[in-house]
């Protein structure tokens, strides 16, 4: 659940930015001849509603109905007493608490006479909610409008960019402040890292660790004891006001590994996409002489997902927008060890 700082700051997220987002979505709705638009949210898939309203539920779920005109309606099963709090941290839209949000949405759709209703990620929309809406608003047709939403959202606006950079700073600073090389207790290291991020105002913080970079294996949760190898890595994912970034660093205990890792880190810090350059090309260029690139992926917000793979070494992911900030995850083979890192790249900023 989200249990860190949740507060709205008009400087960081001006109402005008949200109104502009709403106008962009409505323009797409007009092109697609949609009478209304529905976006689902919960803590795992909160990015769509957060982009529209500035709000992520700390728990439970909700639905935003964007009518053709008027304020968006946020219907949630969170309790009635929480509505006042939601309104204080949700700068756009009206809040209605109800045990059955989809029934309320259906009622609104029926009242408005809406027929063509766009849904973000219809395939992944909760089936029970869809059935309730279709039963309560006969004549309504649910249409997958994921592409329309993506088009409205294309190009990260300055407000979201600012929040992304703040999330990134929290992730980076929490890692930078660690005396990691001397650490013996992985759990204590994770705790210190998380405390730093939360004291800085992180809304949420997920930390995973790769305890031994001398062996195969991925980033693990710190929910059981781990023993550090001679090199290890920490990956910090931070949400700030509903917007996510990640940072990961590798740490070597021996001088040779420390030197090789420092070289890789310096190269990674220099990475920027040249005009027309691919990510694979840029990675090969900056890491030439450091080590062999074994794997990489780029992540950006997509639909209801706060971060989703949009480009990868195997070419499976798609949808990358090179003009907007993105998280780049990299794995190199360095001095007989794996070197894992992640950082935010913010083109044009």
């Amino acid at each position: 659940m989200r249990r860190g700082l949740m507060a709205w700051d008009a400087q960081e997220l001006p109402r005008a930015a949200l109104e502009d987002r709403l106008s962009r979505l409505r323009a797409r709705m007009g092109e697609e001849k949609l009478d209304a638009f529905i976006v689902y949210t919960n803590i795992a898939r909160g990015a769509g509603v957060c982009w529209l309203t500035g709000f992520t539920p700390y728990w439970n779920e909700g639905l935003v109905l964007v009518p053709a005109q008027g304020a968006p309606l946020f219907a949630t099963a969170l309790s009635k007493r929480v509505a006042e709090w939601i309104a204080s941290v949700m700068p756009q839209g009206e809040v209605v608490t109800t045990p059955k949000p989809p029934a309320l949405i259906a009622e609104q759709l029926a009242k408005s006479g809406a027929v063509r209703v766009g849904v973000l990620e219809l395939d992944g929309f909760p089936a029970g909610h869809a059935q309730t809406i279709l039963a309560g608003a006969p004549g309504v047709e649910l249409i997958d409008a994921t592409a329309a939403f993506a088009a409205a959202r294309a190009g990260m606006d300055p407000a979201e960019r600012g929040l992304t950079l703040r999330a990134d700073a929290l992730a980076r600073e929490s890692l930078a402040s660690l005396a990691a090389e001397a650490a013996l207790d992985p759990l204590a290291l994770v705790a210190a890292c998380e405390q730093g991020a939360r004291l800085g105002g992180a809304e949420e913080c997920f930390i995973t660790l790769a305890p031994d970079l001398g062996k195969p294996g991925g980033f693990l949760r710190a929910d059981r004891p781990h023993a550090f190898g001679s090199a290890f890595a920490l990956r910090v994912s931070v949400a700030y006001k509903g917007v996510w970034s990640r940072s990961a660093r590798s740490f070597g205990k021996e001088p040779a590994a420390q030197a090789a890792f420092a070289q890789a880190e310096a190269a990674f810090a220099r990475l920027a996409l040249g005009p027309g350059e691919t990510l694979a090309g840029a990675l090969a260029r900056v890491f030439a002489g450091c080590g062999q690139v074994k794997d990489w992926s780029a992540e950006q917000p997509r639909g209801s997902y706060p971060l989703a793979a949009v480009a990868s070494a195997d070419g499976a992911a798609e949808g990358f927008d090179p003009a907007s900030p993105f998280v780049l995850n990299v794995e190199l083979e360095v001095a007989g060890l794996r070197w894992r890192a992640a950082r935010l790249l913010a083109p044009g900023g």
Partner: peptide
């Protein structure tokens, strides 16, 4: 208030607690 949460969460991480529902 969020500084209290930061302290609690750090404590729980040292104990290997990955999640905590807290308001």
């Amino acid at each position: 208030d969020y500084e209290l949460i930061a302290e609690i969460e750090a404590f729980f991480r040292t104990k290997g607690v990955p999640e905590n529902f807290m308001i």
